[in-house]
Amino acid sequence: MEMVLDILSWFFLLAGSAFCLIGALGLLRMPDVYTRLHPVSVIETLGMGGIILGLLLQAGFTLVAAKLIIIAALILLTAPVATHALAQAALHAGILPKLDHDKTGGHIAGEDEPSNS
């Protein structure tokens, strides 16, 4: 039983670390601000989730586990808020995303006149 928990914990910790590294690599490779938001959400969901889950399996049913669950829930609640605020601020600052396909018909919600992006 102990052995199985250890192996699972190893697996989740390594998966989380791998997703963190992949996300950082993506952050370095992506061409513009809006595409860079996506690797960051990989880090903040899968990387964080994997590492916290790995720690959770080591902690067992203790106070430490409760704190870990609180940390995971807080990150999952606050990360999209920060990401959305960042994207909105970048759009309002006039930085237009590099697009392959624009399906909005030039209309962005929240703007009155259509903009040609």
Binding site: S9, L13, A18, L21, G54, L55
Partner: peptide, 13 residues
Amino acid sequence: MMFAVATIAVLIT
């Protein structure tokens, strides 16, 4: 050991 590995990975990130 595994915590140390994960910590190093996060620090590289």
